[in-house]
C-alpha cells in the first residue's frame, strides 16, 4: 500500500518515524542518566556518611517512636506543655512578622530602583540588582551567626538577618512584578503631567499590589521557618526551646514544641494559600 503513496509522503513518514525514534531515545537516555546520577550519588554518600543507609533506614522511626513513648509516659499533663511553650511560639512569630514587615518595606524601595521601566539610568538598576543579589544569596544563618557573635544572644541578630534576606529575595520578585506591569496606565498618567511619584503610586503600585501581597504572605511563611531555625543557634523563641529540650532529652516537651510548630506551619500554609488564591483571582 505504501508504494501507492507519493514519494514525498513516504519520505515525510520515514522522517517522522526517525524523529520519533530519536526523541524517545533521548528521553530514555536522559531518564537513565538521571537515575544513574542519583544512584551513583547515593553510593558516594554511602561512603561519606557516618552510618550506612541500610543501618539508618530501619532506624528512621526510632526517634519519633522514642518521642511518642516519652510523651505517653509523661501522662495527661502533656496538654499543659502546649500552653507553656505558647509564649515562645508567639515570640518566634513576632520575630518573623516584624522582619517581614521591615524587609518588605526595604524590598519595595530596592525594587523600584532596580526596575528598568522606572529608572532610566542603567548603572543604578545594575547596582541595586547586585545589592539585592548579595542580600538574597547569603543564607540567613550565616549573617545571623556572625551577628550573634557580635551582639550577643538575643532576637535582634535573627531579625536583622531575616530582614536582609527578605529585602533581597522579595526585592527581586517585586522588581519582576513591576517590570511586567502594563505600560498604558503609566503613559496615561505621564500624559496628564503626573510626577514620578504619582506615576508609581497610581500607575505601578495599583497594578502590582496583588502580586506584592502574594509574595509577602509567602515570604512570611518562609520567615517563620527561618526564625525557628535561627532560634536553634541562639536567637531565642521556640527554636531555642526545641534545641534545649532535645539536648536534655525531654521527649514530652520536644514533641509538644514540634506539635506547636507543625500546626502553626500547616495553619499558615492553608491560610496563605487561601489569601494568595483570592488575591490573584485563582479562588474557585
Amino acid at each position: 500500500m505504501q508504494s501507492s503513496l507519493p514519494e514525498n509522503l513516504i519520505k515525510i513518514e520515514n522522517n517522522l518515524k526517525s524523529l520519533t525514534r530519536t526523541r524517545s531515545i533521548y528521553s530514555f537516555l536522559s531518564i537513565a542518566a538521571l537515575i544513574a546520577v542519583i544512584y551513583s550519588g547515593l553510593i558516594v554518600a554511602e561512603t561519606g556518611n557516618a552510618t550506612s543507609i541500610w543501618v539508618g533506614l530501619p532506624k528512621f522511626f526510632d526517634y519519633p517512636i522514642d518521642l511518642f513513648v516519652g510523651s505517653w509516659e509523661y501522662g495527661y499533663r502533656w496538654n499543659l506543655l502546649l500552653l507553656e511553650y505558647l509564649p515562645d511560639l508567639i515570640s518566634t512569630i513576632n520575630m518573623a512578622l516584624f522582619s517581614t514587615a521591615i524587609g518588605t518595606l526595604l524590598a519595595f524601595f530596592l525594587s523600584i530602583f532596580s526596575s528598568r521601566n522606572l529608572i532610566k539610568s542603567k548603572t543604578t538598576v545594575l547596582i541595586f540588582r547586585r545589592i539585592m543579589d548579595i542580600c538574597r544569596s547569603f543564607p540567613e544563618l550565616v549573617i545571623a551567626l556572625v551577628l550573634l557573635y557580635l551582639l550577643g544572644k538575643s532576637a535582634l541578630p535573627a531579625v536583622i538577618a531575616i530582614i536582609i534576606h527578605t529585602a533581597g529575595a522579595l526585592g527581586k520578585l517585586f522588581s519582576e512584578a513591576i517590570e511586567n506591569v502594563e505600560k498604558n496606565p503609566i503613559e496615561g498618567l505621564e500624559s496628564c503631567g503626573a510626577s514620578w511619584f504619582t506615576r508609581i503610586r497610581f500607575g505601578v503600585v495599583t497594578q502590582a499590589l496583588p502580586l506584592f501581597l502574594t509574595y509577602t504572605i509567602l515570604r512570611f511563611e518562609i520567615n517563620i521557618r527561618a526564625s525557628t531555625i535561627l532560634g536553634f543557634v541562639g536567637a531565642g523563641g521556640i527554636g531555642e526551646q526545641l534545641y534545649t529540650n532535645i539536648q536534655w532529652k525531654y521527649e514530652a516537651d520536644t514533641i509538644a514544641i514540634m506539635f506547636l510548630l507543625v500546626s502553626t506551619i500547616i495553619a499558615l500554609d492553608y491560610l496563605s494559600s487561601y489569601w494568595r488564591k483570592s488575591l490573584i483571582g485563582l479562588k474557585s
Binding site: 558516594v44 561519606g48 552510618t51 543507609i53 539508618g56 528512621f60 526517634y63
Partner: peptide, 9 residues
C-alpha cells in the same frame, strides 16, 4: 540526624 548520623544522607 538520629537515624543516619552526621553525613550527606
Amino acid at each position: 540526624l538520629r537515624a543516619f548520623g552526621p553525613g550527606p544522607f
